[in-house]
């Protein structure tokens, strides 16, 4: 089930079937004096697990400018059914029941390669949303180019881990 969220960010779709698109639009720019500031980020979010009893996990994966060298964020969002509407209400999970890891991938011209990988991070307190993020510095960690974040998110339920992976879409680093 695709789950609508109250999201105000402009998103870049990475849906296939579009042969070409103008991506990574400059979303906001602020003009102050003779300087220009740009802010932009790209993400995808979808339900990756719909368990029995109306319990769901959404995973979000994001890439953005950060401090010039890029910023990755991976998120778990857990929901449950209360009444007839499935996966509408937050589902708090205790410490150690949510986990996220992600890879920063770069397009080499022929394939995607791993630039950076972050190991599993577990929630340390009760939560229904856990965001894990990394600022990659002031310069892209694997040189100028096209980057994206591949996030794996999981939730523990009845002793087993459930979840899936999301791709953020792509972003040029450093930002123009």
């Amino acid at each position: 089930m695709r789950f609508p969220r109250k999201i105000v960010e402009l998103r870049q779709s990475s849906r296939s079937g579009r042969l070409a698109f103008v991506a990574s639009l400059v979303v906001f720019f602020v003009v102050a004096g003779a300087t220009a500031a740009l802010a932009h980020y790209v993400y995808e979010q979808a339900e990756v697990w719909d368990g029995d009893g109306g319990r769901c996990l959404l995973v979000r994966s994001e890439i953005s400018h950060g401090n010039g060298g890029g910023y990755s964020k991976g998120s778990d969002l857990t929901y449950q059914q209360l009444g007839p509407q499935a996966c509408l209400f937050e589902w708090d999970r205790g410490p150690g029941y949510l986990r996220v890891r992600y890879n920063l991938l770069k397009w080499t011209g022929t394939q995607y390669g791993i630039c950076k990988s972050v190991d599993w991070v577990y929630n340390g307190s009760t939560a229904n949303i856990m965001d894990v993020y990394t600022y990659w510095g002031t310069t892209p960690p694997c040189g100028t180019g096209i980057y994206g974040t591949a996030t794996t998110g999981q939730v523990k339920y009845n002793g087993s881990w459930y979840g899936g992976r999301m791709w953020s879409g792509v972003h040029t680093l450093p930002p123009p």
């Binding site: 937050e90 708090d92 972050v118 991070v121 929630n123 340390g124 307190s125 009760t126 939560a127 229904n128 949303i129 856990m130 965001d131 894990v132 993020y133 990394t134 600022y135």
Partner: peptide, 8 residues
């Protein structure tokens, strides 16, 4: 990671 945030 640089950090982690939680909401509940």
């Amino acid at each position: 990671p640089s950090g982690v945030t939680y909401r509940s």
